[in-house]
Amino acid sequence: MSEIESPQKGAETAQPRQTTTGESDEQLRAEWTDYDFDGEAKLAVEDLDVHYGDEHALKGVSMDIPERSVTALIGPSGCGKSTYLRCLNRMNDRINSARVDGSVQLDENELYQEGVDLVELRKRVGMVFQSPNPFPKSIRENISYGPRKHGTIDTGLLARLFGRSDEESEERLVERSLRQAALWDEVKDRLDDNALGLSGGQQQRLCIARALATDPEVLLMDEPASALDPIATSKIEELIHELSREYTVVIVTHNMQQAERISDQTAVFLTGGRLAEYGRTEQIFADPQSQRVDDYISGKFG
């Protein structure tokens, strides 16, 4: 902590890192991004390249993400961290010009191959976006939207007519998801109100609840707190901490303090779409191995 706050000291400790030991850049990078952790890798990414048209947005990124933990992705704008995130549930497929090469495995199932069921994938890998984007529907409908469309919950007209409506399980699901997202107490009396009437922070927690309602294993978050005030942000941070007991959370953030507070491991992307360093959060922030990462986290650029 103190090293980050005093650039003087940071520069001092960074000095030895500049001495070359005869290793090439590639070897160094492989060393710096090699992160050993106990347990299984939930997501294994190998040599991932992404092109948007002519633009090479992500260059040869390999990093494994451990289960039930929080992984923070930090780096300056345009460094490819959101692109990386969007590869994990194949949201990049929605961009026409995007081309993805390399391998992403979820529980050792290759995601980039023929025959992957995107519906099933996105049920298991949920996503929360930068700006809160609830549907212009009631709070209840927002939560049960995913399960209803997947057919897990059926409250349609015919289901109600034939007496096989799942209204009770819908109620339970709505309550559970909202409780998980720490929103239940604030909205329990107005579940049928339009979600657009909520405040920004509440809307973002609703979006988290909506993502949780499909019972995912991994939760991807793309700067979920960037549009929120400090109080709402701290609520979301607590929430992420809670969620990491059950879920694998991958979060993109611009806020380095936030990454340090909430994550178990941190990946630093630097301009050019390369992964610069990846490791335990304390280690990255206290003792970064590369000079550029040190400069970035101590605020010298970016």
Binding site: M91, R94, L121, R122, G126, N133, H150, A211
Partner: peptide
Amino acid sequence: DASAALGV
């Protein structure tokens, strides 16, 4: 996007 990310 939100809908697609929910697997719909």
